[in-house]
Design a protein around this nucleic acid. Structure first.
Lengths: 189, 189, 189, 189
DNA sequence: GGCTAAGCGAGACGGTACGTCCTGTCTTTAC
DNA sequence: GTAAAGACAGGACGTACCGTCTCGCTTAGCC
């Protein structure tokens, strides 16, 4: 995870735990998820889990965020902000709107509500980068004279739209997100 | 809650349970919340809770939604859509952005993730009406030629913005929401 | 049961309850026996049971003792005490040694341990009469000069032998009981 | 209890549980006895009880039989069978006839009726040894020509007498038991 | 290459809460 | 006007996990 790992930590155990966590989460959902089941599935003592993860929520977040399929991707810069960001939003929607992506996002949200530390970590690894990347792309648009506040509003509306749709179990399609982003950006002008 | 209640249900018990649930949620948070504590606090047998609420998530949602401070309010119609909806958004932000409102929204979100039925109920009582009211106001604006799809995008961006801010533990102020709504509506042309 | 029955008592309910109690006891055993199950099986309200039987143990005893297959039978008097009483013991053993008789005796014993009132009732209806009938037969034996104390010892040894065998899940046959009784009576001489 | 105990069982917990069980049984009786109360009194988790005792009846039997005051004692052999066994019976009656002894015997009986396994255990630790010790003493009497069947009858009559007296809440004195045993042995010739 | 401390699997422990079942009382409905 | 039906407060059941705590046993990393 981080670089300050104690020397003697067993990589085998770490990977088995993360794998078991991901498997169990997607098999049974967050609610039926238990440390004991992870230990059994990973062939690991419970203490080994508690040694490295202070609680369930953080283990869940770590395991879900450890996967690459939801890593924040920067928008392109082709010179056309609206095109770049709406495409970026479309890609994000395709990822978050898939069954697995939506399940992951929901479980991450719930885990974040359980513990503030998890919330921090989720923001640091996911929503924070998302906001920064999009805001930066907006700031780089010479033809758009925007204040930092406006940029944050626009970006959060775009991200919030998708988060809300997923949580409300409503459609989230690439096409819908693209159009919505276009609309929001039009409002920035 | 609904009219088809089996006869002979004790109103005294029902109210005590909802009250105890609200109290305990706001005192200790969703995580430390237990049916057993509700029963003890409400002076009620556990079975009486289980008789009427099938699980924890639904009890939580019922109790939180049973309060009036988060009931969906319709936007005004003064003839100026942008003014009406941005004011509406500002009011909503003031409610959801308050410590209690934010806590309630977060707990509702978590409860909705726990059980699909709760999610349905939350949408039916909260996010659904919110979407409908705002969409209707938009549709009633004669000077705005919008498609239903556009209206839903705009409304969901506005609501999503607020939901996202609350869940990410970021500022949600009346002023910010007002500006954001103005911006999104500008994008609608 | 007794003569002081309130006027309006429903005979239909009373019989259904005793029948259901007997059925359930022999189907599932004393442990799994519950008033609620009796009410359901008998098609009777729980209150109707509680109205006439103060607790589970007494209901159990009443229902089991209400059957005729374990009613105390007096020994004959052919003039030969040893023959009469050993035959009487053999008959009793045949009854108590049968699967159903043994089950009944065991459940009665357990019920008696649960409540002193039940114990009293069991003695009054079952063991008491047994003791008295046998003691009386002994006392009526002219050729046997026995003190009341001796008679009680002999009778209790004979009855105790059978009770003990049943409770220890050991054989109790007509033949064994006959021989044992003969032996005990020989000792009286 | 036995030697094949899985490693790492906590002796502290085991003793505390047996002690609490004994205390609670004699304070409130078998009926009001609950595993939950044992756990609380012993300062132990419920699971620790369930881990080692499969059910209430076996715990009760284990705890009651774990005490030394009812352990089976062999009869002496002074050469006079009648004297030895009647004395032995008197001693047993003194023990079982005392308030505590009688209470223990009644609770053991009830526990044995609850579960066959408990019955087995009770016989193995209590009534079985009693039968064997007395039967052996009888068999060792050179002046008494008895068959095994006769010996078992005599012994069971003696033991049964006491068991029956205790269960019927009737007097059980050293003196009465002594006389009764003498009488039965006289019948053996 | 051997020593030693850490990390490890296993799993018992004191606890909390679960969701179910039953108790004995009370109230309502219907025959 | 009684009795069925069944809700109620209470409380124990037996189970599942929690997070902590030993227990031996590897095994890495330094002498």
């Amino acid at each position: 995870m981080s670089e300050d790992q104690p020397r003697r930590r067993s990589e085998r155990a770490r990977l088995a735990i993360l794998q078991a966590t991901n498997d169990l989460l997607h098999e049974n959902g967050l609610d039926a998820f238990s440390i004991e089941a992870v230990a059994a599935r990973a062939g690991v003592g419970k203490q080994t889990i508690y040694r490295w993860w202070p609680n369930r929520a953080i283990l869940v977040a770590d395991a879900l965020l450890d996967r690459d399929d939801i890593g924040p991707v920067p928008p392109r810069n082709t010179g056309d902000v609206a095109a770049d960001l709406s495409r970026w939003a479309g890609d994000l929607a395709a990822s978050l709107g898939s069954p697995r992506g939506a399940a992951t996002l929901r479980m991450l949200t719930a885990a974040a509500i359980e513990s503030p530390e998890t919330s921090r970590r989720l923001h640091e690894k996911f929503s924070g980068p998302l906001q920064e990347l999009a805001t930066a792309r907006l700031a780089a648009a010479d033809d758009l004279r925007t204040t930092p506040g406006q940029r944050r509003h626009a970006v959060d509306a775009i991200i919030g739209f998708m988060v809300f749709r997923v949580q409300a179990h409503q459609d989230l399609t690439r096409r819908g997100a693209t159009e919505m982003a276009r609309m929001v950006l039009r409002g920035l002008r």
